[in-house]
Design a protein around this nucleic acid. Structure first.
Lengths: 171, 171
DNA sequence: GCTAGCGTGACACTCGGTGTCACATCCGGC
DNA sequence: GCCGGATGTGACACCGAGTGTCACGCTAGC
């Protein structure tokens, strides 16, 4: 699937294709554009007295929703991204910018939008990690597993103190 | 800094340089090779009754140690990686393979090496996330902040239940 | 109608990366 | 001592990605 193939498939010249997307990977990853803003907005919309972890979990429903609307397409896209090293790398890089965005939204919720704590950054990153793990399992199961349940399970694994079952969580 | 530059700087031909490293990025990222194995081994060496989160934190000391031995070099390398999008992407991709390795080590500790749970995978990923956040802050401070303290803080933010200060952690 | 701006296509060019061929060296077996 | 393979190296040729530049055609405004 060379650039010329993509361009001619899209009915434009190679130059135009590159002018639009900048990069071949970006053409695929454009499907994810704006997700960070949507999740951050959802986060800000959560009740102020809700704890960070619950708010993050609920905010991710906006992402999950898109997978629920169009499972086949989402499965194909996700699989393509995970299986193509270059795409995978670019996607991770893009997702890296989600973390500060979510952390900032958490800081706003906490009433201190100017200072983002390490804890908020870590929690934002951990939430994204949970999302990725859940998506991994979901794609590995060909979409048969319940994505919501997987995400809940992933979040629960960190919610009760990050310790394992070998040292049961405090209280 | 083209491939020819690097090759001639290394005193070999372009072909040989590529034969060694495979990729320009790999030449830089080779500095991190084997870290996953070292961390996983350190993890397996932790006492069996230690909870996952503590074991992960201690296992990461092997990584931290390298930063402590040679702070200037580590700072330069880390900064180079973070500031070069292509390098950053490749590094994230490589680090992605650390997660299953650590998760498997956790499973071995738990006595069920054949079945890795979602929780173990999530915790391994979260620990790596903590490492990255700590390293981000450390490089941003030009290495002036205490890396160990940063990592401890990051781990603590998830250890006490992932909830925020709005749901105060049991200390 | 003329011009300024904009989208598009057609190049030329650089660079990263792969594959192939040739040569040179080393090393064990007869 | 010689030979044959294995290995390391360099010199290409080649392809695809990405950038920059130029020319053309369109539409809008004076």
């Amino acid at each position: 699937m060379t650039l010329d193939d993509l361009a001619s498939a899209a009915g434009v010249s190679r130059s135009t294709f590159l002018r639009y997307f900048g990069t071949k990977e970006d053409a695929v990853l454009a499907a994810f554009d704006g997700q960070d803003r949507r999740v951050a907005d959802a986060l800000r919309a959560r009740p102020a007295d809700e704890d960070d972890w619950t708010a993050l979990r609920r905010a991710l429903d906006t992402v999950i929703g898109r997978y629920h609307e169009n499972p086949e397409g989402a499965l194909a896209t996700t699989r393509l991204v995970r299986e193509t090293p270059a795409l995978c790398a670019r996607h991770l890089e893009k997702q890296l910018s989600w973390r500060p965005a979510l952390a900032e939204a958490l800081a706003e919720r906490a009433g201190t939008p100017e200072s983002v704590t390490v804890g908020q950054t870590v929690r934002a990153g951990a939430a994204l990690g949970c999302l990725n793990v859940a998506l991994d399992h979901w794609t590995a199961s060909d979409g048969r597993l319940d994505l919501v349940a997987l995400l809940d399970e992933a979040f629960a694994a960190l919610a009760a103190g990050a310790g394992s079952e070998s040292a049961p969580a405090p209280r």
